[in-house]
Write a protein that binds this DNA or RNA. Sequence first.
DNA 1: GTCTCTGCAAAGTTTTTGCATGCAA
DNA 2: TTGCATGCAAAAACTTTGCAGAGAC
Lengths: 147, 147
Amino acid sequence: MAGTFQRRNTPQRKVVLDELRKLTSHPTAVELYEFARRQLPKISLGTVYRNLEILTLEGTIRRLDSVGAEARFDGDITEHHHVRCVRCGAVGDVRGLPGLPGEMTVTDTSQLGGYEILGYRLQFEGICPLCRDAQDAADGNADAEAG
Amino acid sequence: MAGTFQRRNTPQRKVVLDELRKLTSHPTAVELYEFARRQLPKISLGTVYRNLEILTLEGTIRRLDSVGAEARFDGDITEHHHVRCVRCGAVGDVRGLPGLPGEMTVTDTSQLGGYEILGYRLQFEGICPLCRDAQDAADGNADAEAG
DNA sequence: GTCTCTGCAAAGTTTTTGCATGCAA
DNA sequence: TTGCATGCAAAAACTTTGCAGAGAC
């Protein structure tokens, strides 16, 4: 039966989890691999992927599929949503958004195509502070080109 | 300058768009390619990808990055959200959800990490009717194993 | 005739997997 | 000692791109 395997606490798994929890940047697997290599130079990308999958299935971390081409990972599994910068792809956190239902209970599935709803994710799109600054700076020079 | 090119109305582009609009299954590029080949046997997957990108940039169709590993596409660009089946990966539509804010206006960016918000997507997760049926059937035999 | 689009194929990117060995428990 | 996990590398899955010829306008 699935789920009855004995999980082992290897240094690789610990480093992957520790590094992910240290980062607030929602890194990709490859980015996390680079960080992990600083502590375990021989760790392989395959191992990083395998541990990320295990930790995701355990519910220890969260996988963000919705933020672009590659998956990103979040060591913070408390309730929150994400913003993705449409310019640079950075991902930030969104918490306690005013005006949003803290919990949505959907009992009428007739408008859900018969799906049984397990949960939802709110995914914002926007422009991060750094790209806003860059845009503001560019706007100062853009008027001449607009005509 | 970008955007000044004259778009041509090729049969390939028409077929890609027509097939996508016929389907409500939010197909992947490869799935759409299979459908398109029935009308244009020599169409290439690269052409399908290129046209999907063009149509997306034009705003004629919608690309769904948020529903799994591969991108899916939606020929219906009216306002609606999506449900993804966590079992089989199918994607359904969600419309006029009661209790949801039809439009969210977020002016206080302090809780958004300084991001300028452009929009949002609501992404549901659930179990589709087919997988529910399969689960119900399986539950009848699962009691013995639970103990 | 011009210039975008196409088919084909190669290559790029991201993720998974096979296998022999390593190591946590 | 047992068997899950690792490193390495090949492969799979998905998407993009270069190029010469085709075809829309």
